[in-house]
C-alpha cells in the first residue's frame, strides 16, 4: 500500500461540521463520542476527530464557527461526503447570518453532490421553533437533497436518531436503534423518586415508584456502594438493574423481550447517570425529568 492510499484511507467517510460560533458543533461531536454533555471552549481553527463504528472508520472535521475561520470551510470540502451544518435554533437573531454562511457552501455542496445534513441544535431551549419554520426561514425547500433533524447536545434529545441518519448518509449502511429498557426511573441519592420514563404502561410506572421496590431503592441509597450494579428479579415484570452514582440512583427494567443483552442495558444506564452527573442537574432537581425524558429518546 503506497502513501497516497494510506492518506485516502485516513480521510475515508469524511464529514465536516460547520455552523456559526456557539451553535454547538464540538458539543455534538463529543456527545457522539462519549454519550454525555461536555461544555467546550471555542474551537481554534479546526479539530479532527476519528471514530470507528461497526468497523467503519469515520472522520469528522470540526470547523471553528467564528467569522475569522469561516473562510476555511470551503477549503475543507474536498473529499467530503457529508456536510453537517449546525443551527442554534434558540438564537433566531442569528438565523440571517447562518443562512448567509450556508449559502456560501451550497454551490460546492450541490456541484460535488455532497450530502447536507442540518442539525437544529438546542431543542431543549427552543422546543417551539418548528422544523417547518426553519425550512422556511433558511429557504431549504430550494435545496435538493438535504435532511434536517432536531437535537440537543445538552440533554441528548434526538442524538441517536441524528447519528443514525448521519451514519447512513456517510456510509450507506444502517444502524438499528435498540430499546434497552422497558422503563427507567431516576431517584436522588436519598432514594427520592425524580422521574420515570418508558413504556406507556401505568402498572410498570407504579411498580417503579411503589412498595418494596422503593424500599429497596431507599435501602440501596443508604449504602456506600457507588458504580456497581445490583440486579434483582421480579417475576411479574422482569429484571431490575440498579446503579448508583454520587448524586443519583437509576433503576432500569429489562426483560428478554427486548432482545438486548443485559450488559448493554447496564452500560446504557451507566451512561445516562454519567450524563446527569456531568450536566450537574443535581443542583436543580426540577430539571431532571426533562433532561431524562430527552436523553431517553436515544435509548427507549
Amino acid at each position: 500500500m503506497g502513501i497516497f492510499s494510506f492518506i485516502k484511507r485516513k480521510t475515508k467517510n469524511k464529514s465536516i461540521f460547520c455552523g456559526l460560533d456557539s451553535s454547538g458543533k464540538s458539543t455534538i461531536i463529543t456527545f457522539l463520542q462519549e454519550g454525555r454533555f461536555v461544555e467546550h471552549v471555542p474551537t481554534m481553527g479546526k479539530n479532527l476527530t476519528e471514530m470507528e463504528v461497526q468497523g467503519v472508520h469515520l472522520t469528522f472535521f470540526d470547523m471553528g464557527g467564528q467569522s475569522h475561520f469561516r473562510k476555511m470551510w470551503l477549503g475543507e470540502l474536498d473529499n467530503t461526503k457529508c456536510v453537517v451544518f449546525v443551527i442554534d435554533k434558540s438564537d433566531s437573531a442569528r438565523f440571517a447570518e447562518a443562512k448567509v454562511e450556508l449559502a456560501k457552501l451550497l454551490p460546492v455542496i450541490q456541484k460535488e453532490n455532497i450530502k447536507l445534513l442540518i442539525f437544529a441544535n438546542k431543542h431543549d431551549i427552543a422546543p417551539d421553533v418548528s422544523l417547518s419554520s426553519l425550512i422556511e426561514t433558511f429557504e431549504l425547500d430550494k435545496i435538493s437533497n438535504f435532511e434536517i433533524v432536531e437535537i440537543s447536545a445538552k440533554t441528548g434529545y434526538g442524538m441517536t436518531d441524528a447519528f443514525i441518519r448521519f451514519y447512513s448518509i456517510l456510509t450507506g449502511q444502517t444502524i438499528k436503534k435498540n430499546s434497552v429498557a422497558k422503563s427507567i426511573s431516576i431517584y436522588n441519592n436519598q432514594g427520592t423518586p425524580l422521574t420515570v420514563q418508558g413504556e406507556n404502561d401505568d402498572s410498570i410506572k407504579s411498580t417503579q415508584f411503589e412498595g418494596g421496590f422503593l424500599s429497596a431503592i431507599t435501602a440501596f441509597a443508604e449504602t456506600k456502594i457507588n458504580s456497581s450494579c445490583i440486579k434483582f428479579q421480579s417475576e411479574e415484570n422482569g429484571t431490575f438493574l440498579i446503579l448508583k452514582t454520587e448524586n443519583f440512583i437509576g433503576a432500569l427494567l429489562w426483560n428478554d423481550a427486548l432482545e438486548i443483552p443485559i450488559d448493554v442495558s447496564e452500560e446504557a444506564l451507566k451512561e445516562l447517570l454519567d450524563h446527569l452527573e456531568s450536566s450537574k442537574v443535581y443542583k436543580e432537581p426540577e430539571s431532571v425529568p426533562l433532561l431524562v425524558e430527552q436523553y431517553c429518546t436515544n435509548i427507549l
Binding site: 456559526l20 460560533d21 456557539s22 471552549v41 471555542p42 481554534m44 467564528q66 467569522s67 475569522h68 442569528r94
Partner: peptide, 11 residues
C-alpha cells in the same frame, strides 16, 4: 485569547 462569547475572534 479566543473568547467564549458569541461573535468573538482570536486576538
Amino acid at each position: 485569547g479566543l473568547e467564549g462569547r458569541v461573535g468573538s475572534n482570536p486576538k
